[in-house]
Amino acid sequence: MQRGVRDTAGRRDAGGTEKPKGEKKPEREREERFPREQRSDEERAPRSRRSDENGTPRPEREDASTTSRSQRSDQERVPRSRRSDEDRTPEPHEERGARAESSDASDVYLDIPVVKVDEIELEVENLSASVALQAEVLDLLKLNVGVEVELGRVDLTIKGVEAQALLKVRLDNVRDVIARVLETIDAHPEILEHVVEGAQRTIENVSEGAGQAAAQLGQGAGSALEETAETAGDLVEGLVDDGDEDEDEDEDEEGDENEEEDENEEEDDAEDAEYEDAEEEWDEEDEDQDDEEEER
């Protein structure tokens, strides 16, 4: 595949064949882009790769400033799909040129190569593919661009399928913009002073605000502590006063209870005395009656 990139780049530069937008592609070109029965298994796997301007392939990686994601459906999402083994025969290198042409100028290139399937019964929801690019230089430059295609719900049967997808990112424009920014900074380094001053002002504002907040927090905490202490003191004093009053009341109550007991005892004693007196009287009366009977 990497060799194909170089081959294609050379062909593109030499031929310079650019097709107007919207024009139907000749069958030969489609055949080159969808070479039948000439794809190796290695090329069927999606991959991301970078290439230099001179065509020297780089190790596979995605640029840190670029995000790309895709959700594959075909083989991965469809349990009832069948792939034809006869379509997996390797392809000669010269036949890969046209397909690799798409990657020659792309810095990030996620390739979902030709997928050939006999039949798919596809039923998925929220199938989406998106690719985006983001770049920032301090507060001087913020770039962001992206595209997304989304299918809400897909329920279909498809036979004799050949499909492919490409997600591409070019960093040329962003690189040029960043280069211009850096050149401008190089020519006018005072720009950075403004940036630094702005950052310092931001930091000062933040620290000042934090200091004021901390001071207010301290004041608030101090006031709260003072009030809490006063409240606690009042409560303690109140508790102490209440405690003394309670003790006096308890003593009074005990005295009252003793007096009541004494009164009750006195009453009992009085009743006992009356009863004894009555008994004595009864005994005397009995003795008197006995004496009268004896006299009789």
Partner: peptide
């Protein structure tokens, strides 16, 4: 700067539901 390309050829295609496509 960014792009998505997709191609599909099929001998036969039947939609059981019309898909909703959003870009």
């Amino acid at each position: 700067d960014v792009g998505i390309d997709a191609s599909l050829s099929a001998r036969e295609l039947i939609f059981r539901e019309v898909p909703e496509v959003r870009t």
